[in-house]
Nucleic acid binder design. Structure first.
Lengths: 341, 341
DNA sequence: CCAAATTTGATGTACGTAAATCAAAAAATG
DNA sequence: CATTTTTTGATTTACGTACATCAAATTTGG
């Protein structure tokens, strides 16, 4: 049988109240007594029954998710996954709130983080905008003892406890190798469609992509990046224009959102040409394009996993528990026509 | 505030004892009274606090994992993951036992399942051997009310509650497309190394592979399957022999275990040739081979995820709770050199 | 050494549910 | 209608922990 507080008290030769004081770091215990109890805890291998403790405390975990108010499929999906998690709140003792802040606006994000510092939730998950002010606002939260997880886009150099998202450099590298291998030894130009170079994850994808391309596929020449602002209309215009002007394009890497526009441009302009296309994020549009051959591979991050992982990690950190690292690693999904979920 | 049994009792105008009788389907409640209680439960949106219930019941979940006693990296890894889960038993209220049965021996598996039917554990996970007797033994367990999950290898047509493993047909199809695309339009022969055609997952991988190859890459000709019995020595011999005899081989699909032998053969015989190789299961050996370019892609199923998913599903089924399907879907991981974990 | 301060013990209640017991009420049976 | 059977209520204990209170013991300071 698993040891309880009673067993600890007996083993340490102290009362239940003292064990409680030690366990919950309440004052009024002499150093020697504290050590006796801690020894007993270690010897018996006691682990606090979190369920019973939460019951006694009537614990709920107020969690806040801060998202950019971006109007693209991926953010909509992320939002939907959080709402799905909210539907499970009762069973999971969570109380989740979604806060939207203007996209690409570090100051708005900082203000929100400062508001949160006062509310003292059990945890905060945020899609980070990469700016020094944001970093220090996050650090302040962490120093106040509030668990913080970055979601989808990381904030390296900050004190955030965890990042629930994919390795975007690896994603870019993978895209490059897939594209390079799919093109065999062909020689030609590669168009790159990004959302914005101001966003860290897009920059990182590009960085990884360019590195592998340069090193392993010198026959392929990268055109300068097209910034589609994750907007289907802009993406359509940029790609249609590029394809019209440049006959040498044999491959496209779309590393951001707004793929609806890309796909439309491909169907209009490249029906006769054989283009190899790698895109990010599995949506209804990219899925259809993968199936009909317009896109050759889709790299994806599972928003549902990211959200559930963020919640698990925040709860664990709030309780001072450890997490299963392998379980919380967000994997880069590679979808071909054949392994779609 | 979340409603409790007391609220239900008050709302239904009955006593706590009656609510308890209804909730735990104990006898001695008239039909009309039962309905009153059930209505109150629905109206108030009551959900039983599983943590509190488990506490009151001092519930533990005795779970049994039945594995084939196969001596290959994948099974060793699976075994290790289960032992890791056993280390978490205390916190998760599980009591996990591993039983090994001779591989490819349906009768041994059936005997074990019959033994288990008597022990009445909270759940059973098994790596299924595909045979009618196994199917009926599983069905009997299920009919006895014991949750059953197949692991890694499924048992279609049986009543098992869930399958924690990848879609092997999709895996084979994916391998075919990757290999076909990586080979560009080249013409040549493809060698296939399997463990045994008696195992369902290997048969399915081959089926998917052959289908896509025939339909989409007619320039590639599949040689007849080499059965390496998941044994590195046998695999080495078969591949070395095939490469020695046949100069037309330009690609290899290894859909089983025993890749250590394959890799050795490739290094000896094909240093000068340019072969494209797709293999299954990420191990120390295949990882090294991927990094040094001997293997071009690895398809993988994450044993840790499979084990944790099986446990979650078994616990949920034992409590009559629903699972999050998307969370329990085991994904096919595709690893290139660039996205290794 | 005495008073004050600190440390420890003893005890009770609470969290939400399970499970048991016994009494009381209601329904079914003859 | 009386009797048996079934249904319901009331109450208690338990699970493992948190937290509060008050008394008792011990240590510390002057």
């Amino acid at each position: 049988m698993r040891p309880t507080v009673h067993d600890i008290a007996a083993a340490a030769g102290v009362s239940l109240a003292t064990v409680d004081r030690v366990l919950n770091q309440r004052p009024g215990v002499r150093h020697v007594t504290r050590e006796k109890v801690e020894t007993a805890i270690r010897d018996l291998g006691y682990v606090r029954d979190v369920a019973a403790a939460n019951l006694a405390k009537s614990r709920v975990y107020p969690l806040t998710f801060i998202l950019p108010a971006s109007d693209n499929s991926f953010m909509h999906g992320l939002n939907a996954e959080i709402r799905t998690a909210i539907a499970r709140s009762v069973a999971e003792r969570t109380d989740i709130r979604i806060v939207e802040v203007p996209a690409f606006d570090p100051q708005a994000l900082v203000r929100e983080l400062e508001t949160l510092a006062a509310e003292k939730p059990s945890g905060v998950a945020l899609v980070a905008t990469d700016a020094p002010d944001v970093r220090s606002a996050v650090d302040r939260l962490v120093k106040d003892g509030i668990p913080v997880v970055t979601l989808v886009s990381d904030l390296t150099g900050s004190l955030r406890h965890h990042y629930a998202g994919v390795d975007n450099i690896a994603a870019g590298r993978t895209a490059a190798r897939l594209l390079g291998r799919f093109l065999g030894g062909a020689k030609g130009e590669i168009a790159i469609l990004a959302g914005s170079m101001l966003v860290r994850d897009h920059r990182e994808r590009l960085e990884g992509f360019a590195a592998v391309m340069a090193q392993e596929f010198p026959a392929l020449h990268l055109l300068s990046v097209l910034e589609g602002r994750d907007d289907p209309e802009v993406a359509h215009m940029l790609i249609a224009d590029a394809l019209g002007k440049n006959d040498g394009i044999i491959g496209i890497y779309s590393l951001g959102a707004g793929n609806r526009g890309l796909i439309r441009a491909l169907k209009e302009k490249a029906a006769d040409r054989s283009l190899t296309v790698i895109a990010h994020e599995l949506t209804a549009h990219t899925r259809a394009a993968l199936l009909d051959g317009t896109i050759d591979a889709i790299l994806n991050q599972d928003a549902g996993h990211e959200v559930r992982s963020a919640i698990r990690v925040l709860k664990a950190k709030a309780d001072g528990l450890s997490v299963i690292d392998a379980q919380e690693r967000i994997r880069l999904d590679i979808f071909l026509k054949d392994n779609l979920p």
